[in-house]
């Protein structure tokens, strides 16, 4: 009896550790059999380039979810920060200044969301939903609905450039993943994010700076959304006020599929990386297989639901 219980438990531990990795490999295998284009270098680079935008946003989203929150405003924040920075650069601002402006705008919008959450005790869902509609509305009115286009090459470099034949976004997202990992696992602030998510009340009674912790994750999420926006805009050479609509969905999907729990305090950067890759391959695979775009969202929704069921079963 006892030994049966032990094997059952380690079976679950095994599933928890490698289940996601195996599903990812299985999906890749399936796609490489179903279409001969999947494994081509240009396609794989394309997958990674697409994954980079979602990956950067997902790191911020993951930290927010670790604190039991959610950030619905990532797509809208990205759009507003980029149309303003894009307009600035087109009016002759130096690209570097515009890039810094873009990141600062994203961080400021995160600061507003975070302040609503920490000072006014507005639930994160509502606070960031408000930020989402406000930012989107401001982006539309700022541009009067027209996309901002025609950027200098150095402004576009983050999204369109290559280094050693590899697209720059892949370097950026790798760096963000690495920094995110170090932040979460090796710095006091990162450990406090976990502690706060595990038990906000105990964090307060332990004297942790709970407000700063929560504020930080929203600022980070806003700034990372803006960074992802610079890549997107650089690649498209256009910043539309309607850009990045629904991006919050892919970021949340990647984080959840990666095993971060909505109860807070539980999740790993490895899981999020795999979640991002899985969502990217899924998107790419469905395009290669000519799945109609309306139906793609159905599949992604189902994948999230399955992932949640899976984690519920093995936890």
């Amino acid at each position: 009896m006892a030994s049966f219980a032990v094997t059952e438990r380690s079976w679950k531990a095994l599933l928890q550790q490698y289940g996601l990795f195996v599903s990812f490999l299985a999906l890749c295998l399936l796609l490489s059999l179903a279409t001969d284009r999947f494994l081509r270098t240009e396609n794989l680079l394309n997958v990674l380039r697409q994954a980079s935008i979602n990956g950067i946003i997902a790191v911020g989203m993951m930290l927010v979810i670790l604190t039991r929150g959610i950030d619905l405003s990532v797509g809208a924040v990205l759009a507003l920060a980029c149309v303003i920075a894009g307009d600035a650069v087109r009016q002759g601002w130096p690209s570097l200044i515009a890039i810094v402006l873009c990141l600062a705008l994203g961080g400021s919008m995160g600061l507003v969301s975070g302040t609503l959450v920490t000072r006014l005790n507005i639930p994160p869902f509502i606070a960031t939903l408000g930020m989402m509609t406000i930012a989107r509305g401001l982006a539309l009115s700022y541009t009067q609905g027209q996309p901002v286009t025609g950027f200098p090459a150095d402004f576009r470099w983050l999204g369109a450039g290559t280094l050693l034949g590899i697209p720059v976004p892949i370097f950026i997202v790798s760096g963000i993943f690495l920094l995110g990992y170090v932040l979460l696992e090796l710095t006091p602030l990162g450990r406090h994010v976990f502690a706060y998510g595990d038990n906000p009340s105990a964090a307060h009674y332990s004297g942790l700076s709970t407000r700063q912790i929560v504020l930080f994750v929203y600022v980070l999420s806003g700034a990372l959304s803006a960074l992802a926006g610079l890549i997107l805009v650089g690649r498209l050479n256009s910043a539309a006020p309607t850009t990045a609509e629904g991006y919050e969905f892919d970021a949340i999907a990647a984080v959840v599929v990666g095993g971060t729990s909505f109860d807070g305090g539980q999740g790993t950067m490895w899981g999020t990386i795999l979640g991002v890759l899985l969502i990217a391959v899924l998107n790419n695979g469905m395009n290669l297989l000519n799945v109609p775009s309306e139906f793609q969202t159905v599949v992604k929704g189902a994948v999230i639901a399955l992932a949640l069921l899976f984690y519920k079963a093995i936890r």
Partner: peptide, 9 residues
């Protein structure tokens, strides 16, 4: 449990 511990840590 409510105010002292991070139970899942």
């Amino acid at each position: 449990k409510g105010q002292g511990l991070f139970l899942r840590m």
